[in-house]
Each structure stands twice: as C-alpha cells, then as structure tokens.
Amino acid sequence: MDLDALLGCVTSSSCLVTQTTSGLIVGMLLFMVAAGLTLIFGVLKIVNFAHGTFYMLGAYIAYSAFMFTGSYVLGVLAGGLGMAIFGVIFERVLISRVYGANVLMQLLICYAVVLICDDLVKIVWGPDFYAMGMPPAFQVPPLFIAGGVVPPFYIMLIVVALAIGGALSLLLGLTRIGKIIRAAAHNPNMVSALGINTTLLYSLVFAVGGMLAGLAGGLAAPVRSLTPGMGFSILIESFIVTVIGGMGSIGGALIAAVVLGLIRSFGTIGFPLFTEGLMYIAMIIILVFKPSGLFGKEIV
C-alpha cells in the first residue's frame, strides 16, 4: 500500500490528468462491451457469457481487414459488422433454443461457444499473438494537457465510444424500435401481444450487442495483443461493470465502467499489488447496499 503516492498523485494536476484519462480510456472500451451485455440481459434476460468472444472475434476480424485494406476505419467497421452478423446467428441457432431455460443451461451453451471459438481462432489465425500496430494517422507524439500526458489516439477512442454510447441512448430513447426494445425489456408478453415480431426484435438486440463488442475489439486492436482466449479478461470485467451498474441499465454500465477504470488507474498508484482485489471488494460492497446494483430494477 502506498497512500502517500496516491495523495501525491491526486494533488498534482499532471498526475490527475494523466491517470484520469487513462482510467477513462480503460473504462470507455469496457463500457462498449458491457453495454451490449447489459442490453441483451435487459431485453432477453439472457446472461451472454460468450460476450468476450464477440470482442475477441471483432478484434481478429478488424486485424485481418486492416491487413487487407490498410484502413483502420474499415477494419473497425468490419469488426463491428462481422460481430453483428455473428450475434444474429448465435441468437437464432443457439440462444433462441434456451429462452426461459435455467441460467446454468445458458452458461453451458455459451461456454461451449467460447471453447469452440477460441480453437477456431487458433486454427484460422494461429496460436501466435498479433498486434495491429498504430495506424499512421495516430503515430504522433502525445499531447500535454495541464502537465498531463494524453495520446491523441486515446482522445479519439474516448470520443468514438461516447458517440456510440450517445447514439445508443438516442436509438433507445427516441426511435420507435427503441421504444419497443424498452417495452420488451419491461414486459415481453405485452410486446408480443401487440403483434410485434419479437423474433426479429431479439435478433436485432443480439446484433446491436455483438456489434458493440466487435467495434470495441476493433478499436482496441492497435494497442492490445490479439491471442486466442483474449476475450476472457474482458468478459470478467464487463460482468463486474454490468452487475455494479445494475443488469439491464446502460447508464449504470457507463458509470460503473468509468468508476472501474478509475479504480484501476488510481489503484495502481495506491495499491499496486491488490488492484484486482479492489475491484471485487467494490462489487461486493455495492451489492451489499444495493442488492440489484446501482441502477438495476429490484427483482421480486
């Protein structure tokens, strides 16, 4: 434990700026993965344990598309689109068969998909780890803001993630389909009784969730290593985020993701050897006082 260092950091503007942006970037990428997870749970009451795999596949597809086209933007879009399609297939072929089944049966099916996809990645791309490399447009020196160091690439990531989060809220809040999705989350039978095609709706939700995870994987590919099984650590953190935020609450996921990012960035200064334990303690404390997460609906 190094509380002096932590105190020193929060009282210095350069450290505060640097660590806050680093917490934000970790948090925003996490939010994109967690948003899909929480959306799927909110509407379908499905806990998608294969969500980390969406992220992994998105990163690999983006990597290949980048290698093929040389364009980072196309790479990211390919990752998002590929995972939207994958999400629909996953929902139609597998998940649709276990709606209403026990959560453990869903867990089993998702686990099987994780196993299969990790090996498929190994077969298609090989067991080596890859790095996409920084797109030339972002191979520039970092900016200095109030004495803190902030790379332009990360500013772009934060802006893009915020934009996507904003678009998602607008979609859910203002459009007709968004209203239907929210209504379905509230009362699926009612939506179905109103003659709305729930099959299409459920596929759509998985497409959006998959796309978000795929985009996150693609966006992160220039700076993170691609290995089979890379989705797992993201999955665990996304679950912490969705549970703390309240399962089904996208706003809650945003706040929890940022909080988690900040715990990591300041925890590494104050408690360098126990950062991970800190995240679990935060989760337990929040659940003890708010048994359905910060913004979750009470389950009765």
Binding site: V47, V103, I236, F239, I240, V243, M247, L273, F274, E276, G277, Y280, I281, M283, I284, L287, V288, P291, S292, G293, G296, I299
Partner: peptide
C-alpha cells in the same frame, strides 16, 4: 451471511466476486 441476502443472478455474481477476492488474496 452476505451472499444469501441477494437474489438470482446477483447472488450468482456476488459469490463469484467472493471467490475471486479469495483468489486475489491467495495470489497476493
């Protein structure tokens, strides 16, 4: 005493958090 206060999926995740906390302690 802490976990059984929670319900369904939240119970599931709080038990997982407990396990991972113990795992972190053992690793540290």
């Amino acid at each position: 005493a802490i976990c059984i206060r929670l319900r369904l999926i939240y119970f599931a995740f709080v038990t997982l958090a407990m396990q991972m906390l113990m795992h972190s302690i053992i690793i540290s």
